[in-house]
Design a binder for these strands. Structure first.
Lengths: 343, 343
DNA sequence: TTGTATGCGTTATCAT
DNA sequence: ATGATAACGCATACAA
């Protein structure tokens, strides 16, 4: 025996009114007599009337819900993003439906279809690290679905993007290592076709160039599948560390890469920073105390989530694209070892 | 210009059929001629027809979505739980709507109302650490909403619960410290009225009792507000460590407590385990390499999420409570320092 | 000021 | 084998 919510019809019957009178009373229409209005409102309140959102959705052709597609919920960056998205959505009266791509293109496509067929009003997506072709997203976008892309962004004409200041963060991080006296700085990044990768790598290279005479050649390794498997990252480290001229420091360009490089160093008894300098993108709680010397680039996950959700809802409610800008850039936070304790 | 999905009506018009014929063809009714059926199916496929889930929801009075209420999405335990919930829900054709209580009773109540009014078919909840009264949940439950409680569970007659083996994990963890030779083991736990707290503390005390002659008196500190603020945990540590007879080891009974005790030790240069033994509940990635001696109790977040979702969906689809059992207990995993590298 | 009728997309129950 | 109609809950254009 499932709970049956009270409807407008029930109220109408109880008060011997028509449904339209009840409906109008509840929406505080001025064309209803004060007494009737009060009677209805009182009865509704007493019986805890709540409009059925599904009926409203059917009528209005909108569900007041937004979909999120990320590769993995159980990832500190994304869970913090979702936190931001949820808080903004909640403020605006939307709810949030989650789907995971698990770093897999097929699953990403079906997640999008799933959300679209669930009639969300709009979608926030950070593409998987295996997504090099954006046709499935463009198709949906072209059919009119409001979409905002964040972090691992999609790149085609017109779509709105919310990103971190990847270039600057990587540049500053590299300079930080240089200032600490490291001479041969390597870089480990994600899939080479992701914009976050190319931007971060560019920041890294530009920093090296600027200080070129001081430095040995650069060394970049790419990890292709989101670094879901630790081994791929360990292999990259093996390769880097077994060279004749091995690096004395590393810039790690994703949460998972940072974590697993630390794990690698631990297992192979490579001291940080005595034997190897390290600065990495990471949103994991605890990285701040991991070693006395680790510096971290915190990604503005929460803020990005809020901004992306705000933008998406604006698009939904204006019923067409916002034209003011296309890409919103949010700065990262460089936590140097000294300031880590403030966290 | 929003994308308008094709409807049964459109198909009917295009093929000069009635909506009922189209509907029946699509549901593969035997009372439709094979030719007509094929024509409809082909047309539907070509035009990418998808039934409108909102219309179905209105008709069937079910939305094929389940709500989740947790204190905080950006928490490794809960994001892993959500991962499990999402994967199970996805398999069963449900989607997942998320709401956060932020460790606040008011927000928990409104989150529940929000979900109920959004017509989810059922709710998974882990109550906030400020929730000592379960009336708001019982009310919803008594009105017929299927609810499964997990982790921080609700306790009233009849409600299904999915929990960790809190007692055993705390017991084993304490014994682990005893076996390592620690003599005065303190315990820091969450709100004293939460079942996870009482169970864990009981495990801790029973372990101490068993080895009593060897050990000094026990020492328990409770952290009341989910440990959202690090200071509360730092204060508890100050108090513990400034006693005449300070502990030589600590059992930390939540993710956040474990993290912040580590942070406290780092800041106060307390070596683990030389100056202080430590074993703690934690699902944070990286804790495994934090110090060479840290042992961890991993909570089965993903599995709990899957089990809880499975149970909830079973309740929803059977349209009444499952009567076989009430509480499902899932074991934790004790990761001792040696085995941590296997993680 | 209030009531009646219609439509949102779908399926079930009647007809035919 | 197919079509017409009602119903799910709500809002609104149209009548009265």
């Amino acid at each position: 025996m499932r709970y049956e919510a009270i409807t407008i019809k029930d109220i109408a019957k109880a008060l011997s009114l028509s449904t339209s009178t009840v409906s109008r009373s509840l929406s505080d229409s001025h064309e209803i007599s004060p007494e009737t209005k009060q009677r209805v409102i009182n009865y509704a309140k007493e019986n805890n009337y709540k409009p059925n959102p599904i009926a409203l959705s059917l009528k209005d052709k909108r569900s007041r819900s937004i979909g999120i597609v990320v590769s993995e919920v159980a990832n500190s960056f994304f869970s913090q993003s979702i936190n931001g998205i949820e808080s903004m959505a909640n403020e605006k009266g939307y709810n949030v439906i989650i789907a995971q791509s698990k770093e897999d293109l097929e699953r990403e496509i079906s997640a999008l279809e799933f959300l679209a067929s669930r009639s969300v009003d709009g979608i926030l997506i950070s593409v998987s690290s295996r997504t090099s072709n954006f046709d499935h997203i463009k198709k949906l976008y072209d059919r009119g679905m409001p979409i905002v892309s964040f972090d691992c962004v999609v790149d085609f004409e017109g779509i709105h993007k919310v990103i971190q200041d990847n270039y600057k963060a990587a540049y500053d991080g590299t300079v930080h290592l240089i200032n600490k006296g490291f001479k041969k700085i390597a870089c480990i990044a994600s899939s080479s076709f992701l914009s976050i990768t190319t931007e971060r790598v560019k920041g890294y290279i530009d920093a090296l160039k600027k200080y070129e005479p001081l430095l040995k050649i650069s060394d970049i390794a790419y990890i292709d599948h989101g670094g879901l498997k630790a081994e791929e990252i360990f292999d990259a480290m093996d390769k880097l560390m077994n060279q004749k001229e091995k690096p004395d420091a590393i810039l790690t360009c994703s949460d998972r890469i940072t974590t697993n490089v630390m794990r690698y160093c631990k297992q192979n008894k490579i001291g940080i920073p005595n034997q190897l300098g390290l600065i990495g993108f990471s949103n994991l709680d605890l990285t701040d105390i991991l070693t006395p010397s680790l510096s971290i680039i915190r990604q503005p996950a929460y803020e990005m989530g809020r901004k992306a959700a705000e933008l998406l809802i604006k698009m939904i409610e204006s019923k067409r694209a916002i034209t003011e800008f296309e890409t919103m850039v949010i700065p990262c936070l460089l936590l140097e070892r000294e300031s880590c304790t403030k966290y």
